[in-house]
Amino acid sequence: MQESVRRIIETEEARMGLIVVNAWYGKFVNDQSRKHEKVKVIDVTVPLQCLVKDSKLILTEASKAGLPGFYDPCVGEEKSLKVLYQFRGVLHQVMSADNEALRIPKQSHRIDTDG
């Protein structure tokens, strides 16, 4: 998988395309009162980059746990996919529910770094 990712990243860099900087899948705890709960997420940066075709990533309305290179880090709990990606040299970020369809890149995911 690493070799495939290296080739895909080289191709995407050459065209200023879609590069997955970081991607995590699982249960994110951001509520201060539940901080003692163990965060149950896995790094899915490499498997997600493998799914990039022609500077696009399209995921269907199905659990992401079934994708190649993914597994369910917290069975029976609500999960999300968080992706930090670069497109045309600009950082973007999106958080998507487990069974939600996802299409990237999107202008609405852009991170405003001005000021």
Rank of each mutant, 00 (worst) to 15 (best):
Q107Y: 09
T60W: 04
S108H: 03
D112F: 05
L102E: 04
V75L: 10
I42M: 12
Q2N: 13
I58E: 11
F28E: 03
I58W: 01
I111P: 00
D54A: 13
R110D: 00
K79W: 03
R6V: 06
G76M: 03
G89F: 12
N30E: 13
I8N: 05
K38D: 01
A14K: 09
R34M: 10
R110L: 13
Q93L: 09
G17Q: 07
P105T: 04
R34S: 09
A14H: 07
Q2M: 08
P105N: 04
Q32G: 03
K38F: 00
Q93I: 08
G66D: 06
P68W: 07
T11H: 08
D114P: 00
H92F: 09
R15P: 00
K35F: 06
E77W: 10
P47W: 02
K56N: 13
G69P: 01
E12N: 07
V21E: 12
G76C: 01
T60S: 14
E78H: 09
V75F: 08
L48A: 07
S80A: 08
E10Q: 11
L67Y: 10
V83F: 10
Q107F: 08
E77I: 00
E78N: 13
Q86A: 11
S63G: 13
P105C: 03
I8H: 03
K38L: 03
G66M: 02
L48G: 09
E100Y: 11
I9F: 04
V52T: 02
I58K: 14
C74M: 01
T113N: 10
N22R: 15
K64G: 05
V94Y: 06
C50K: 10
E3F: 10
D72I: 02
R7S: 13
L18T: 02
F87Y: 15
G76Q: 04
E12C: 05
W24F: 14
F28R: 02
V94H: 06
Q2H: 07
Y71C: 06
P68S: 05
V41W: 02
A65M: 03
Q86I: 05
E61S: 15
E13M: 08
L102I: 04
A97E: 13
D114V: 15
D114G: 13
G17C: 07
V21D: 12
V44S: 11
F70D: 04
G69R: 02
A65D: 13
H36T: 06
R110W: 05
Y85K: 08
M95H: 05
T113R: 15
D54W: 05
L84T: 10
A97W: 07
V90D: 07
